[in-house]
Design a protein around this nucleic acid. Structure first.
Lengths: 206, 206
DNA sequence: TGGCGTTATTGAAAAAGTGTCAATAGAGTG
DNA sequence: CACTCTATTGACACTTTTTCAATAACGCCA
């Protein structure tokens, strides 16, 4: 089906620097874990795809779960890093910029994002924490960009509502990517951006 | 840590009717799968907790995944069954009733609901289908008699938006249960109910 | 260029977990 | 009190994960 193409040296093993090897394995992990769950991915397959022995994976990550954790952490870091912090302009404008960057990221890194989301929802405490951390960073931006509270006053109730809104945005984006239903990119952004103030508007304790 | 207390017969094995045994195992499964993923739950542990041999689990469910599926299906059926069928009245009123029943269920059956949600997010096609089915049933109750589209016109864009709203509702409920933040039950319901029309209002293609 | 030390990498074997099935033993029945 | 039916077990085969001593690339220095 597929043969190893990375083999630099003729006959034997390929020796990389620890950093390179880690990168390779994490990249591969993100890709492979986007569409299957952890127990549907055998170390055997992973090792074969990577062109290494099973043992090497354990050398780098200790065990399968730790590997998964590292993969998810990497996907989360990627997300935070690549959805650049907002520039300047009106709050509403900055939010659109921010959402736009988020949407682009999910479109471009669909696999990485899926790995992250699936792990968070289906996984253990640690995995969920990694996800929560990433999401907090994202949500935090919403409040930070609106320091005066022009759009969103910072109260317990609105914090809750923003969490809910985040979940909606995530669902909208993933669902739209899977099936756009004739909705354009701009319309989607409009829906996501406009719905936050709309929801906050109907929040009692605001 | 914990010792089997269910042993009716003095020395040997406990014999139940197939129905009772199935129930026991499904109940236990729901509980155990609320906070860990499937591959973090060994048949060994499950059998020990249930006070049975590993073999018996296979006798009843065939294999581990089938067991998981049965557990999730049971949680879904529970949800549908226990969130009482919709009453009549104004659309907005029905929505409140429905959301209220849903909230109560999630509060009372937190573990069952978690098992369901986690399985859906992290799992395979079959598991996701079970979840989708349950969610459709729920959404269906809310919208069945809004045939005129008084609140929600039926368009591709609004379908997408309703999906998003559902995700938000789920997140709000779970998040509120974990940390109410001073928001009352009634306020929460108000937020969830009012936000749907609010979001639809700002949807371009409606 | 060729030996030499460091360490990335392997392979075989142990451990852990899943799935199978003939044998066992509760519980009702006549 | 046998006798039958079948829920339940335990030992065994198979698969996958994990360990670790042995191996072999690569850089370095002569």
């Amino acid at each position: 089906m597929s043969q190893p193409t990375l083999r630099q040296t003729s006959g034997g093993r390929t020796r990389l620097s620890p950093e390179q090897r880690r990168e390779q394995l994490l990249d591969l992990g993100v890709k492979l874990l986007a569409h299957r769950s952890l127990d549907e991915l055998s170390i055997d397959l992973l090792a074969e795809e990577a062109g290494i022995s099973r043992g090497l994976l354990y050398h780098y990550f200790g065990n399968k779960h730790a590997f998964h954790e590292a993969v998810v952490r990497r996907a989360a870091d990627d997300l935070i890093e690549q959805t650049a912090p907002p520039v300047d302009g009106e709050p509403m404008e900055r939010m659109l910029t921010s959402l736009s960057a988020y949407l682009d990221y999910v479109v471009d890194n669909h696999e990485g994002y899926l790995s992250l989301v699936k792990a968070a929802a289906g996984g253990n405490e640690t995995l969920r924490e990694i996800y929560e951390e990433a999401r907090s960073a994202l949500n935090g931006r919403v409040f930070r960009e609106d320091a005066q509270g022009d759009i969103i006053p910072d109260t317990p109730a609105t914090r809750l509502v923003v969490r809910g809104w985040s979940a909606m945005v995530e669902e909208l984006v993933l669902s739209w990517i899977a099936e756009p239903r004739g909705v354009t990119r701009e319309e989607l952004l409009e829906i996501m951006a406009a719905s936050l103030p709309a929801i906050v508007e109907v929040t009692p304790g605001r």
